[in-house]
Amino acid sequence: MSDLIAQIVDVRKQYMMGLVLVEALRGVSLDFHRGEYITIMGPSGCGKSTLLNLLGCLDRPTSGKYILGGQDVSTMPDDELSSVRGMRIGFVFQSYNLIQQLNVLENIEVPLYYQGRPEEESREIATRLADRVGLGERLHHRPYELSGGQQQRVAVARALASDPLIILADEPTGNLDSTSGSDILNVFDELHAQGKTLIMVTHSDEVSERAQRVIRLRDGKVERDERKN
């Protein structure tokens, strides 16, 4: 368990909610290593989503450090942060978040497009990934023509497109029935087996069963961080 790829040190996050100052994270320090399968759990309002946003470089901490792949991203300007997101992070959201006017292939290509990769190369990668998540037959379907499970599989393929350091998933099975949900979790298991690093926020104990490390948050602090072997 060496090979540190991400590290947060004493991270705090405060924001104003109307007139109230909310302290979402109050000094969180965590290390993430290559190939880990981690779930973050905790009651709502514990700071899970804030932590995930920080890890995904969608937001910057109020104080503390975030080092991703050897780079300190906690003070990076917006544009650089965008490139880091595009290249180092793969997102899978609860509500799939596919772009409606694009077909399966085009959706998978979006991160590559913003990296400025040549069209033929992106097309090749997207086709391969769609095949891998079992959507090789539906390359030109648009999201509304797909079931929830299929849409989420497209989202997973999209998260893999730029071969990121970390795949972040925010309750990826929350909107799915149990069959589709376990389908997706099986895909994650496969990814884990291939050595990908996965961080997943979930409410479900069943889901966290599959992970090898469970981080529990409470009131903006790490309550428990247990590794299974």
Binding site: G56, L58, D78, D79, S82, S83, R85, G86, M87, F91, N97, L98, I99, Q100, V110, P111, Y114, Q115, R158, S162
Partner: peptide, 16 residues
């Protein structure tokens, strides 16, 4: 708005 959020998350810069 949501599409914009998705694109930003997937690496789109402001100028994109």
């Amino acid at each position: 708005t949501r599409e914009i959020g998705i694109r930003r998350a997937l690496g789109a810069k402001r100028k994109d």
